[in-house]
Design a protein around this nucleic acid. Structure first.
Lengths: 150, 150
DNA sequence: GGTATTTAATTAATACATTAACTATTTCAC
DNA sequence: GTGAAATAGTTAATGTATTAATTAAATACC
């Protein structure tokens, strides 16, 4: 298995390179980055979202989130609200201005996702989800490589 | 299909987040980044590699490659050689020092790849490759979304 | 043979990624 | 209650990512 071009990271990165430009084209029209969108769509669809929550759900690291939220705050799309009961915690909440954007962008993002989904059958898609899941779990648990062949 | 968490980019990013730390742990031991490794392994296994070639084969953009190659050059792992017949072109070639690294790191990278591969069956793996390929191609060709269901 | 167009690599500007360290709270154990 | 340890968010330093613009060399065309 000497083939680096077919390695897991390269396979996934190639696939991402194929789809992300389509997303970016959309986001650019609304002066957003992909990461900014990820933050927005989480706070638009959940309540009481802290930075830690955002990190989990957007897959963005806490240090990255700082500057991303900074910029969203400058654009008046979100604002930081310090928690009263635990003053370490900070909630990131949507602004009214952000809500307008949500209504505009969301359907277009969904259209892209549908377009991607329609590249393959439901069966293929679910199999892929399952395979990725297996690998994710297999690599999470330390070292059990040769066992979990399934 | 309202589920952003199961969107294609998020699925792939989650999988990458699961596997990349294992790679990084290795690369860090040799004072390399993942991107630097990608460049190295291409020039170690091919001849007459230009920046443009590297961009294709590493999936790194030309602007990114500039600083990556700069750093590899500083570490004496590669050197730039301007082409004689086309003076715009620049070959990136491996140094002897780099070759030593190659022998050390390559087997360990292969071990990680094997570990990932062993998380799923051959059948699952091939199905995933095929599915990713379909999506990559489907999104490359502009707009033919609803047609290529397979 | 000189100008316009491409091409290969780079620079510039802004945004994010990663790791380690730091600050302000809070919690826990004694 | 108090000091140690944990937690939430941030800062710092270095290394990419992305887009647009630039430079230098090569090719095309008239």
């Amino acid at each position: 298995m000497q083939n680096f071009d077919q390695s897991f990271p390269m396979l996934l990165n190639r696939a991402l390179d194929a789809v992300m430009p389509t997303y970016r084209e959309l986001f650019t029209r609304y002066n957003l980055t992909e990461q900014q969108w990820r933050v927005l769509r989480v706070i638009w669809t959940s309540k009481n979202v802290t930075s830690a929550n955002l990190s989990e759900r957007t897959l963005l690291s806490p240090p990255s989130l700082v500057s991303i939220i900074d910029r969203l705050e400058k654009k008046n799309l979100v604002s930081r609200v310090r928690s009263v009961d635990d003053r370490r915690r900070i909630y990131v909440v949507a602004t009214a201005e952000g809500r307008i954007l949500q209504a505009e962008v969301t359907p277009q993002v969904l259209a892209i996702q549908t377009r991607i989904r329609n590249c393959v059958s439901d069966k293929e898609w679910l199999a892929m989800e399952k395979t990725l899941q297996k690998i994710t779990e297999g690599m999470q648990s330390p070292e059990q490589s040769l066992a979990a062949k399934a």
